[in-house]
Nucleic acid binder design. Sequence first.
DNA 1: TTAATAAGTTAGATTGGTCTAACAAATTAT
DNA 2: ATAATTTGTTAGACCAATCTAACTTATTAA
Lengths: 216, 216
Amino acid sequence: MNSLVEENYLKALFSLSNEDGEVNVNDLSKRLEIKMPTVTSMMKKLAEKELVHYEKYRPVRLSEMGKKAATHIIRKHRLTEMFLVEVMGFGWEEVHDIAEQIEHVKSPVFFNKMDEILGHPSFDPHGSPIPDINGNIRGEQYRKLSECKKGNKVKFMAVANSSENFLKFLNTKGLSLETKIEILSVEPFDGTMTITYGDRPPDVFSKVVCDKILVV
Amino acid sequence: MNSLVEENYLKALFSLSNEDGEVNVNDLSKRLEIKMPTVTSMMKKLAEKELVHYEKYRPVRLSEMGKKAATHIIRKHRLTEMFLVEVMGFGWEEVHDIAEQIEHVKSPVFFNKMDEILGHPSFDPHGSPIPDINGNIRGEQYRKLSECKKGNKVKFMAVANSSENFLKFLNTKGLSLETKIEILSVEPFDGTMTITYGDRPPDVFSKVVCDKILVV
DNA sequence: TTAATAAGTTAGATTGGTCTAACAAATTAT
DNA sequence: ATAATTTGTTAGACCAATCTAACTTATTAA
């Protein structure tokens, strides 16, 4: 069985994987806030356990086993978030840190029960897909709001970041998933957007924020 | 903040405390299945943090701080068990091991939400009292069934052991909390009891089992 | 009351996960 | 093409939690 620490490395590897599935040691180090030598030594350990493919001075790739292990943890994380919101009544901004802890619980029945109570949901409260029990992910591809053009009418489908601060900001703006958004203008210099949604007056969102809003 | 390991020592110390609040290093070692030298060194560490009173070659006692920390963990454990049974629909025999993991979650709001959803319960699914948020325990004193006499009519209030095997055994016997039990006879040699409850025919329970059944 | 046994401690090793300092390879810029 | 910068590795230390072996203190039995 993998330790809690190993699980966090696997999760980070999965979420940092680019198209080729490659991840630089440096990126992993930054994501986990763990110094590079520590990451290097953990990569050796995970390679030993055949969870990653690793050759020195080369980027790392999850093996099939590693990918399976990673999606399994992500499944537990996202089911937990959904449960916290739907069953326990938490706000979507409160659940990330709690789920971060509960995802490491070793008890298949516990997560299967959640899944059953929730009716086998496909998405978590932040719009991220929940892997099924075999690790398959319903791969929706969303665009960043920041990549859309003036005049586009889109629908808010997911957030690219579940931090409490960002979600609280969206709460104050009255912006939630499934909301339809119209882009009124885009500032060419810094990408700031003026948008409207619901029955709201036009409002201005920075590029940093628009990068984290995923739409169709 | 205390580590998960420290929390397990505190919990064990609390549950092993005798009338004087004293616990032998040896008993702790057996309970936690950790060798005595390790326990000794952890006692030094906890004494350093003023969670226990410890002098070498003497039994250990929890300090007031230590007691508070211990009851706080026990509160989280028992709330979790109650939540798993009442909200998620688990059987009382399934919840101990899951709660053992979730009790270490650091998130006051999470446990307060459970408490609220459950309507501030005073007892867990095994009849053990749930400490309130200040660590106060509603101290019911129950007798062991094994200490009762022939002819006594008693009520099953709690179990002294929450292991899956023992509770599964009670399930097969159709014996649950609040059931009224009548003692038909006691074997003087080994303490085996013949009892009846509900609309059941008389049945025979060993002393080992009767020791773990708490009644009024 | 002394010998035997049980309980507790000390010393030193081990493992997992982390770090810093120093060095090596790869990438980028000049 | 070479120098500068960034990225990655090696070596060695540290801390928490564990262990075994050897020793000491306390308790129990003869």
